[in-house]
C-alpha cells in the first residue's frame, strides 16, 4: 500500500533512503521464500528513476538546486554508491542506464560548495577497482565505464586509478573485440592521461619505463588499425602538452621510439600518417638529438624527403605546411655526426 501514497510527501532524502533499503535487500542472495522480490525490484527501479528526475529535471521542470543538494547529501551519507555499484548487474537495462546517469550527475553536485562525491570516493577507493575491471564484463562494461569516466573528473580519484595495478589492464581493454567497449576503454584511458595535467606528468615521470614500453609494443605496434590510430593520436596529445615536456624530451631521444614512428609514417592510412607526423616532427625538432637518431635520419634522408614531398592534407592547413617545411629543412641540413 505504501506505493500508493508516495511522491507527494516524500522528500529527495526519503527517496534515497528507500532506495538504499531496497538495494540492501536486493544485494542479499535471493531468498526463495521472498515472494515480493520482483515487486521490490520494480520499486527499486522506480526509485532510481525518481532520483534521476530530481537531478536532471523533466521535460516540464528544471532541477531544483536545494532538492539536488539534499539528495546528494543523503546519498553519500551512507554507502549508497557501493550498494548501487554492486547491485547494478541485478537491475534491468533501463534502471542500469538511470543509475549510471545518477552517478554521473552526483559527481558534479556541490553541497556547501564541496564536491562531496570526491570525499566519499577518497574514503572508498576500492570502488574504482570494481569499475575498472567492469570492462571485463561485456554486459556491464558500458555502465561501469561511463561511471568510471565521471569519477576520474576528481583529481585524487584519477591519481588513484593511474597508480593502481589496474592501469596496465587498459592496454588490453582498448583492444577488446567489441568496438563499443574497446572505444569506451580508450576514452577513459585518454581522460586519465590528459585531464589532470600535474598528476599525469607525475605519473608519466614515475612510470616512464613500463608505460612507454607497453604503449609502444601493445598499442603503436598493434595489428589493430583503430588501436594504432587512437594510440598515435593520444601520444601526440600527451607529448605536445607543455606540462609533459620532460617526458617528451625523453621520448624523442630514443632511437627505438623513432623506428616505431617511422614505421607509422609509412602506413597506408592517411590519418595514422598524419598523426605520426605530429610526433615525428618532435624527434627532428629536438635541438639535442642523440647521434644515433641523427644517424638514422641521415641514412633515411632521401626516403623521408621523398615521402614528405607528396605528403598533403585534404584541406589546406597552414600550420601543417609550415611544420613540414621546417622538418624538411632540418633533415636536409643534417650532417652525420662523429663521436
Amino acid at each position: 500500500m505504501k506505493g500508493l501514497f508516495k511522491s507527494k510527501s516524500r522528500t529527495p532524502a526519503d527517496v534515497v533512503r528507500q532506495t538504499r533499503d531496497l538495494l540492501i535487500s536486493a544485494d542479499r542472495s535471493p531468498d526463495p521464500r521472498d515472494t515480493k522480490r520482483e515487486e521490490k525490484m520494480a520499486e527499486l527501479c522506480r526509485n532510481i528513476r525518481e532520483m534521476k528526475s530530481v537531478l536532471y529535471g523533466s521535460s516540464e521542470a528544471e532541477p531544483v538546486p536545494e532538492a539536488c543538494a539534499q539528495l546528494t547529501q543523503e546519498f553519500f551519507r551512507e554507502n549508497t554508491l557501493r550498494l548501487l555499484i554492486s547491485c547494478l548487474p541485478k537491475l534491468n537495462l533501463e534502471a542500469r542506464k538511470d543509475a549510471t546517469q545518477v552517478v554521473a550527475n552526483l559527481q558534479r553536485q556541490q553541497v556547501n560548495s564541496r564536491l562531496i562525491a570526491s570525499d566519499y570516493l577518497e574514503a572508498n577507493f576500492d570502488l574504482l577497482d570494481i569499475l575498472v575491471v567492469g570492462y571485463d564484463n561485456t554486459d556491464m562494461a558500458l555502465h561501469y565505464g561511463s561511471m568510471l569516466r565521471e569519477c576520474i573528473r576528481h583529481q585524487s580519484v584519477a591519481r588513484y586509478v593511474l597508480e593502481s595495478e589496474h592501469m596496465k589492464k587498459f592496454f588490453d581493454y582498448i583492444q577488446l573485440p567489441n568496438f563499443d567497449i574497446a572505444a569506451d576503454a580508450a576514452a577513459t584511458f585518454k581522460e586519465l592521461l590528459t585531464r589532470h595535467k600535474s598528476t599525469v606528468a607525475e605519473f608519466l615521470n614515475k612510470n616512464y619505463d613500463w608505460f612507454f614500453a607497453d604503449y609502444n609494443s601493445k598499442l603503436l605496434e598493434s595489428s589493430n588499425y583503430i588501436t594504432r590510430r587512437q594510440a598515435i593520436k593520444l601520444l601526440g596529445d600527451i607529448l605536445l602538452d607543455r606540462s609533459n615536456s620532460a617526458v617528451m624530451i625523453r621520448y624523442v631521444s630514443s632511437i627505438g621510439n623513432l623506428r616505431i614512428l617511422m614505421n607509422l609514417l609509412r602506413e597506408s592510412s592517411k590519418s595514422i600518417q598524419m598523426e605520426a607526423f605530429h610526433v615525428f616532427k618532435l624527434f627532428v625538432a629536438n635541438q639535442n638529438k642523440p647521434s644515433d637518431i641523427v644517424g638514422v635520419l641521415v641514412t633515411n634522408r632521401s626516403k623521408l624527403l621523398r615521402l614528405f614531398a607528396d605528403f598533403k592534407t585534404d584541406k589546406e592547413d597552414e600550420q601543417f605546411e609550415a611544420d613540414k617545411a621546417q622538418v624538411v629543412k632540418e633533415i636536409a641540413a643534417l650532417e652525420p655526426q662523429e663521436r
Binding site: D184, A187, S269
Partner: peptide
C-alpha cells in the same frame, strides 16, 4: 570506413553505444 571519418571517433563511439 573509419578512414573517411577524420576526427570524429568520439561521435561514432557515442552513436554505437
Amino acid at each position: 570506413d573509419l578512414e573517411k571519418c577524420n576526427n570524429d571517433l568520439d561521435g561514432i563511439r557515442q552513436e554505437v553505444q
